[in-house]
Design a protein around this nucleic acid. Sequence first.
DNA 1: GTGAAAGCGCTAACAT
DNA 2: ATGTTAGCGCTTTCAC
Lengths: 343, 343
Amino acid sequence: MNLKKLSTLLGLSQTTVSRALNDYPEVSEATRKRVKDAARAYNYSANTRAKGLATGRSMAIGHVIPISTQHEMVNPVFADFIAGAGEIYSRNDHDMLLSVVADIDEERIYRELAAKASVDGVIIHGPRANDPRIKLLQELGLPFVVHGRTSDEVADYSWVDVNNRRSFQRATEFLLDLGHRRIALINGLELMDFAQRRKDGFLAAHANRDLAADPALMVSEEMTEDFGYRSASEMLRRALPPTAFLVSSMIAAIGVRRAIGDAGKKMGRDVSVIIHDDELSYLPNGVEIPIFTAAKSSVRLAGQLCAKMLLDIIASGDRTPHNKLLETELTLGDSTGPAPEGG
Amino acid sequence: MNLKKLSTLLGLSQTTVSRALNDYPEVSEATRKRVKDAARAYNYSANTRAKGLATGRSMAIGHVIPISTQHEMVNPVFADFIAGAGEIYSRNDHDMLLSVVADIDEERIYRELAAKASVDGVIIHGPRANDPRIKLLQELGLPFVVHGRTSDEVADYSWVDVNNRRSFQRATEFLLDLGHRRIALINGLELMDFAQRRKDGFLAAHANRDLAADPALMVSEEMTEDFGYRSASEMLRRALPPTAFLVSSMIAAIGVRRAIGDAGKKMGRDVSVIIHDDELSYLPNGVEIPIFTAAKSSVRLAGQLCAKMLLDIIASGDRTPHNKLLETELTLGDSTGPAPEGG
DNA sequence: GTGAAAGCGCTAACAT
DNA sequence: ATGTTAGCGCTTTCAC
């Protein structure tokens, strides 16, 4: 079924049928109803490509998922982010175009997306210091929203970010208040902006109490489960092992948990850094070594906000930077548990 | 830059330029080179929608990601599956269209994808018994490949599946050979085809040795971490707790591990059900309670195969069912560890 | 080996 | 309130 057939069937012109379906005001209500009923009856939907060609818009948003060349690994938070964004897109009749691409090839992909005009805008993930993608997209004139920020640039682009610094500062303060003095920070690659901010928060919490964070307890690498396992195992074998872990990713936290189990320690309560009143991603259990991880729910929310912001920008044609900093909260469950043995 | 401008620039007709770029044989090599160089220089790529409109093909594959209405949860294996499929698509100049949709709305989405002609084919995930989507897509004439199978239908559709039955049978046999007699099966919802097959394999392994599987050690539910934690905790509190766990999902396995830790048991060696010579997803450590999970690598491979099969089907126009059963192997690491205490 | 022209299915001026 | 027409950017006969 296409517009031509449908309009012949109805004894109307293509124009009128098109206008009726797209809610143009000049069409009479009687006609509109007749047209819409017929469209439903014949299961008619306008051909995406023809519509896009005529309007010059694709009604699609691109997400470029860079896959680590080293580990062939997809960052698992994408699943939740994508789910959040996808929800917004389908609610606004937009499609989501996914490009899974080796992180080396990212620039080429953006150029292609722009040249082929296959999307109206893109979402950028995991910005790095002085990220070249931002300049590129501005040059290409392709609207975009960054999930995260890069510290070293002026804020001349739109972004949505979790307040990483503050949430890690508070998480650290929470552990310090419990009496922990040897807190390990298992962090992401420091060239990633979020890892840098989280570390800042971790250090600030110590500094505010005139304590020194032990550099030997701070590691940063690509966040694999193996990395969590290796680094935590090594730390736990030391004469003075850490009494708590602050872990920057869920995946690495799995490895950390395994290491704690192997070391014969009890698993700690998981405390999540969460947004608003969203639920905990882990249930609490007996506290001995607390582990903090970022909650899935916040990632999903970030996906929704990025998507909404980008659609707004595209619809309004307004290219002045928008941004949104998501404040997080610590949710601690019903009891804070005992202080660590060695003080 | 578009074809018209490019051809004027070159002093050629649109036709010739188009033919040169699309490797039509009748164009002279000299012209082809000149055209391709110019295209690169001006960063020209054919507009996706115009090309699609002219050819009647979208060069895009749809993936409908159903999100559980109960848990608002995305099955995390999608990340790896998508990564595998995406790799194949980009290698073949296809786009991937993702629709994240409440599982209730799936049918509507398929109808729309077909009506709007926004994709050339789709991949179906997580087939259930007598899955209505299969009939629907056949009716719509939209080419598709199913990731998984439904047991109750004749094989008149194309699918790619892991040999779930056999891999779980072998995993169970491995545990039985180690001396385990109380093996827990933490399984997915039994209305999902894969869960049914895995259970079959589990039971077959017992039956082959004239052993009876304890029904109280077999649970099935939507595979959340919480489910893994709850069910394993409960089982471990019993007078006769299980000595090994066979877990149907990585996420649930995290919960199971947590429960094992809480119960004061040591974490088991992780043994993965893997395909071919792909690497282990977990490193082995001290054995006490073995846990089996399906490896991520197999999911990625399945994504690649589904994608490749679908592209082949579309290219050839051949609608006779193709299928592929992926055989799995157990990789056991370097030692099998001690038998369980209570035999 | 190259070009002219029609047409893919739709929207958007411009009539009426 | 409805219809006519041109055109979005490409591919594809058909002609030379």
